[in-house]
Amino acid sequence: MSDTTATSHVGNQPRPYRRRVPILWWVRRRSYLLFVAREVSSVFVAWFVVFLLLLVRAVLSGEDAYRRFLDWTANPFVLALNVVALLFVLLHAVTWFNLAPQAMVVKVRGRRLPPVLIAAAHFGAWAVVSAVVAWIVLG
């Protein structure tokens, strides 16, 4: 047990001591705020799945439904939501690829590849995937 946890006894049950932390602990520092913003990005990832499934359903339903979907995306509220979602998803992508070198150690002929190279490979893959997807969508 670490020194931040002590035990108090309720009946015969030992219970770990927990220091009280203010609920808004994460607004105190920029790094904490960035951490929470990264976590919150997952909500916008889930929103995108809903958005994508609505698009798929509209396209499968026919031309009119697809037209209505496009009109709906131009609604100021939906547009604003998607702009915010895009910013959070970009934050997720950039922080994810920047952390990639810490998650994977690649060795070539017994020597560790420099972390910068691994991050660069991820950003390169991102650019390629984005270009291919855009090319397929736009035809």
Binding site: L79, L86, V89
Partner: peptide
Amino acid sequence: AALMIPVLLALFGVLFPLELVAPPDH
């Protein structure tokens, strides 16, 4: 999510509605 979502959301969520890029036909 990092690879796929930004490009799709940028196109369908922002660029098509703002008419900066023409959406593909049905």
